[in-house]
C-alpha cells in the first residue's frame, strides 16, 4: 500500500516528528511504500542540517536524512512555510539574496502542490502534529 506522511511540528518541541519517524519505519518494514514525507508548518524545522542536539540525545534531522537515503524517500519541505521560518536551500538562498543555506541532506524544498499530489496519489495520508 502507498502511504504519504505529513508532519506539522518541528523536532524536539513535540513528539510528532518522532512518532512519524517510527511510523514511517514500520510502514517500510511491513513492505509498504512511502511515496512522500511532507513537512509543513513548524515541521519544516526538521529539515535544517544546523541542528546540534546533545550527544546523548537522538538526532532527529540526521535520522530522517539516513532513513531517506536508505529507502530513497521523498522528504519534501514546504517552500512557503520554510521561507517564513528560515529553512533555505541553495536555490532559495540565491533567489532571496540570503548569505547561507541550511537544508539537510536528502530533503528538498518544494511547493504545497506536493502535499495535494500526495493526497491524490497515496492510498493513506497520515498526519502527525500537535
Amino acid at each position: 500500500m502507498k502511504f504519504a506522511i505529513q508532519i506539522n511540528e518541528g523536532p524536539y518541541q513535540h513528539q510528532a516528528s518522532d512518532s512519524a519517524y517510527y511510523f514511517t519505519k514500520a510502514v517500510l518494514e511491513k513492505g509498504h511504500e512511502v511515496m512522500r514525507v511532507f513537512f509543513y508548518h513548524d515541521g519544516v524545522n526538521n529539515g535544517t542540517r544546523l541542528t546540534t542536539p546533545p550527544q546523548d540525545d537522538r538526532n532527529i534531522v540526521n535520522r530522517w536524512s539516513e532513513l531517506g537515503e536508505q529507502h530513497n524517500l521523498d522528504l519534501v519541505v514546504c517552500v512557503a512555510a520554510a521561507q517564513r521560518r528560515g529553512i533555505v536551500d541553495e536555490g532559495e538562498m540565491q533567489r532571496n539574496g540570503k548569505d547561507a543555506h541550511n537544508i539537510a541532506p536528502g530533503f528538498r524544498i518544494s511547493g504545497l502542490g506536493q502535499l495535494i499530489e500526495a493526497g491524490i496519489q497515496s492510498e493513506r495520508l497520515v498526519v502527525f502534529g500537535d
Binding site: 517510527y22 519505519k25 511491513k30 509498504h32 493513506r124 495520508l125 497520515v126 498526519v127 502527525f128 502534529g129
Partner: peptide, 18 residues
Amino acid sequence: YAGFVDLAAEAEKVQAWV
C-alpha cells in the same frame, strides 16, 4: 508501531485529531 500501520491500512482513511 507495526500495529499502528496495520490499523491505518485496514481503515479507509486516517483522521488525525491534532
